[in-house]
């Protein structure tokens, strides 16, 4: 079984990239992968409280994130520094753990495959 780390660094509604990354993560989990997700840079906006994709006729990304544990994706991390820099009020119910840079280094080091790290 491979250990996957998906790094999400895009904001939620500026493109379809985040949704497609999350779909890929779900497929990896469905194929017995051990999947972790790290939100960083503008990717931390995906955790913003009270967001709704309805106004844009798009799926609400926070809802997609809240469904990850049902795909057995429960290693969920967010970059503490990116959060602090943007002052994002995150939805605590989504269960993402804030981690510092050394913890992120360890996450990358302990993964077999790192996907989608580009800004």
């Amino acid at each position: 079984m491979k250990r996957y780390l998906f790094i999400v660094s895009r904001s939620p509604y500026g493109s379809s990239v985040v949704l497609e990354q999350l779909e890929t993560a779900m497929v990896a989990a469905a194929f017995d992968g051990d999947v972790a997700i790290l939100l960083r840079d503008d990717g931390v906006w995906n955790l913003q409280q009270h967001q709704s994709g309805d106004a844009l006729e798009r799926q609400t990304l926070a809802k997609v994130l809240s469904g990850l544990p049902s795909y057995e994706i429960d290693r969920l991390y967010v970059c503490a520094s990116s959060l602090q820099m943007r002052n994002v009020a995150i939805d605590q119910h989504l269960g993402f753990e804030a981690v510092d840079y050394p913890a992120q280094q360890a996450l990358i080091r302990n993964s077999d495959v790192v996907i989608g790290g580009q800004p």
């Binding site: 491979k2 996957y4 779909e23 890929t24 497929v27 990896a28 469905a30 194929f31 992968g33 495959v113």
Partner: peptide, 8 residues
């Protein structure tokens, strides 16, 4: 998408 994960 399974073909991507399969390849990886």
């Amino acid at each position: 998408l399974g073909q991507l994960i399969g390849a990886i």
